[in-house]
Structure formats: structure tokens, C-alpha cells
Amino acid sequence: MSVTFVIGGARSGKSTFAEMKAKEYAENVLYLATAVVTDQAMADRVRKHKEQRPKSWSTLEMYRDFKNLVNFPEFTNSDAIMIDCITTLIGNFMFDSKLDFDLCSIEKVNELEEKITLEVMSLIEVCNCNNKKLIIVSNETGMGVVPSYYMGNYFRDISGRINSKISHRSDFMYFIFSGIPIKLKHKGEMVKWPQDF
């Protein structure tokens, strides 16, 4: 079992690179699609992603209850699992929560973040316990303009903290910059900052 984490900005080529790694890892791949189609733009994105994936791959549309993956033959019959993407998963949880992020307490936001974190960690655990190679795709949300509204700020902060937790559980990590992959981590080795940084 191994975890490969692929992160980058929007339309940076993350999915294409992650799919390439999945093809390297196994022939039997399960694709976990976290997107929920809510408008024409999302429908177009989903269509394009489907068209570029190998037809032989299995697909499950899900972003929660990953502990139940063991009940799906698509999971048991696959050697590698690819989830695309974590930030969409986070957005789905935030929408499902029905919280008014302009008015709700920070305690409610923290509870939601903990719920999302446990869900993501459960995916890593179920793949680990079943000897699956896992490829995780996520957006780097902390390098752009600071959102001017509460929900955007919470989304950015939750994404950043969950991405950090995934990176520490990963064996391999790549940052995709304008279509170019930059290796950040290989089998537990990360770049160390100078002591006085």
C-alpha cells in the first residue's frame, strides 16, 4: 500500500498527472469521483474528465462513507484507487452542513472540519488495510487572493489543514505547476527547512 498525493492550482494538470501515475501503478483502477453536477460548467468538467479516463477503469461517485468501500466489488477488484478531488469533497460537506457561515459559531466550523478530516483519513485507512495504492488529488487553495467572505475563508483554511494532514500521511507527493510536476516527497523523505528558517 502507498499514498501518492498530487496537488496544484486549478487547471494545472493535476488530474492528468494523477491518472498517469494510476496507470503506472495498476491495470485495475477505481476512480472515486467527488463532483456533484450542479450546473452546466460542472457538467462539462465531469464530461471531460470521463473522456480522458481509460474505459477499463471502474468509477464510483462518492465523497463520504469511505469505510463502506469494502462492500463494493469495484473496490475489492481494484489494485489502485484514485480520488479526484479533496477540495470538491470539502465543498460538498460544507454545502451539506447547511451552516450559515456568516453567522455560525467557530465551534460549528471546527466540528465540520473534524468530520471532514475523519472522512478523508478513513479513506487512507481503508486503502491501507486492504493493500490498495491510493492516489489523492487536491487543489492548493492558499496561494491566491484571500476570500472576502466567511465561507471562502473557511474553505481555504480547512482545505489547507486537510492537505497538510494528507501530505504527512503520503509516501509520494507532487506539486503540479502549469502542467509540470515537481516532486516534493519520496517514500517519507521531505525537504527539510534550515533550522534557522
Rank of each mutant, 00 (worst) to 15 (best):
V3H: 02
T4E: 05
F5A: 04
G8Q: 03
R11A: 15
S12G: 09
K14F: 04
K14H: 08
T16Y: 03
A18Q: 04
M20K: 15
A22K: 01
A22R: 01
E24I: 06
Y25W: 11
A26V: 04
A26M: 08
A26H: 05
E27A: 09
V29L: 08
L30S: 06
L30E: 01
L30V: 11
Y31L: 07
A33H: 01
T34M: 05
V36S: 05
T38R: 12
D39Y: 13
M42I: 10
M42A: 10
R45D: 03
V46Q: 03
V46W: 00
R47Y: 02
E51G: 10
E51H: 08
Q52M: 15
Q52C: 15
P54C: 12
S56W: 01
M62R: 12
D65N: 13
D65H: 14
F66E: 01
K67R: 11
N68K: 15
L69T: 06
L69P: 03
V70K: 13
V70G: 14
N71A: 15
P73L: 07
P73G: 09
P73F: 10
N77M: 13
D79S: 08
D84H: 02
D84F: 00
D84W: 01
C85I: 06
T87S: 10
T87K: 06
L89S: 06
I90L: 07
M94G: 07
F95I: 12
D96H: 10
D96P: 07
D96Y: 08
L99G: 09
D100W: 07
C104T: 09
S105T: 15
K108W: 06
V109G: 04
V109A: 06
E111N: 12
E114H: 15
E119H: 06
E119G: 09
M121D: 08
M121E: 12
S122F: 07
L123W: 01
E125S: 14
N128T: 13
C129I: 14
N130V: 12
N131S: 15
K133E: 08
L134Q: 02
L134H: 03
I136F: 00
S138F: 00
S138T: 03
T141P: 01
G144Y: 05
V145A: 12
V146I: 14
S148M: 15
G152N: 06
G152P: 07
F155N: 07
S159P: 03
G160I: 00
R161I: 05
I162W: 01
I162D: 00
S164R: 14
K165A: 04
S167M: 05
H168A: 12
R169I: 01
S170I: 00
D171Q: 09
D171K: 08
F172E: 05
M173C: 12
F177I: 11
G179Y: 06
K183F: 04
L184N: 09
K187W: 09
E189S: 13
E189D: 13
M190D: 14
V191H: 11
P194S: 13
Q195L: 11
D196G: 05
F197E: 13
